[in-house]
Design a protein around this nucleic acid. Structure first.
Lengths: 201, 201
DNA sequence: ATAAACATACCGAACAGTCGGTTTTATAAA
DNA sequence: TTTATAAAACCGACTGTTCGGTATGTTTAT
């Protein structure tokens, strides 16, 4: 992509993460990306459009995870690799942010997701599918782990998968409120580890 | 409270739930509550203030739950009573909504919470405490349930409490995306029941 | 008669978007 | 290598509209 356009897109992403669609003004986008109104409207036709592209180019990819590439030989290596990827992505986003702005990273990915759900109806179905695939991937690995007796439980593989997935999202929500997301991955690992321990045969 | 003021407050709550603080205009508040600008500014000094009161009067109470009043003799009765209360509150909110507007209820309590966290700094500490108390209440009941051998697990009471609390919040998040919150309580019950079953001695 | 409760016309600021222009870059003929 | 030309990149003053909020009333209840 053209450098300038990418610069505008990236700045917009970070601003939208900070404050949501409506709260970000064209003036801010233009100023922080280091261009003018003219430059902006040379690349984008409207504020809505830059938001749409931000979601398509950056945000959707941030949430997407290709589960095929994760190790599935054991449940433990699966969830550890999962956490690792999320953590790395988080670091990239943070360093982008610190290059552009000063101050603390706005610890709320959900806010921009909610804006996307409201402004871009097609996002809902897409996210719905994403969650479905996530659960299916967990279920598959869990079934396998049950079969090789890595774990033992009375829970169905479906419910155990939900237990893992839901708990991490719940933690993320709580961290938004506490605004301490450096702790996020530590806490998810803690919960997943302890859940895993309780499943030992 | 004065009927008119309450009417304005209630309408504001429902609008803020629908679209967030910035997206709601004074025109909408005034029109949908059935009054005029003059009436509004007779009761409130600004848009920020009505938001603040909405959070104080309605929203904070919606999230607060007095755990002392829940049955603590068994973990099962505790979580069932918990779900019951949440479900009842949800019904009230929905019927309010349908009295005021047509169409589907905006299935996203988090959106207004995020606005509150941004606009009213004191809310953060308050919510932080709320979550802490919630976890402590669960922990207490779980410890008791472990003592009378209602349940048996290798998990610590702290981690098991987190398992219950986080999973329900994670489900709520997923329901925001699927926008099918009639399923919310069913799914929470399902997960809590299955978790509970796996804890049977 | 007085004050509270409401209504409405109006205000300046801020907003997203436009428009006429200049500068930079790419291409290619001389 | 220089010059000519067209297109892409970029600028910022300006515009119409909408915003939250105000000023000035009128109606209603006591």
């Amino acid at each position: 992509m053209k450098d300038s356009k990418e610069q505008i897109l990236k700045t917009s992403l970070l601003l939208f993460l900070q404050k949501g669609f409506k709260e970000v003004t064209m003036k801010e986008i233009v100023k922080n990306s280091g261009f003018s109104k003219g430059a902006f409207y040379h690349y984008f036709s409207s504020k809505e459009e830059v938001f749409k592209e931000v979601i398509e180019v950056y945000f959707s990819k941030m949430l997407h995870l290709d589960y095929e590439t994760l190790p599935s030989d054991s449940l433990k290596s699966f969830y550890e690799a999962n956490l690792d990827i999320q953590h790395k992505r988080d670091s990239i986003l943070r360093s982008w942010y610190q290059e552009t702005f000063e101050g603390d990273f706005p610890n709320n990915l959900y806010y921009i997701l909610f804006d996307a759900l409201r402004l871009l109806p097609e996002i809902r179905e897409q996210q719905h599918r994403r969650i479905h695939e996530e659960l299916k991937a967990w279920e598959k690995v869990i079934k396998k782990a049950m079969a090789n007796e890595e774990i033992k439980t009375t829970l169905s593989s479906e419910n155990l998968a939900k237990q893992f997935v839901y708990s991490s999202d719940g933690i993320a929500m709580h961290m938004v409120i506490s605004s301490s997301s450096d702790e996020l991955f530590k806490e998810v690992k803690n919960i997943w580890d302890s859940l895993y321990q309780s499943l030992k045969p």
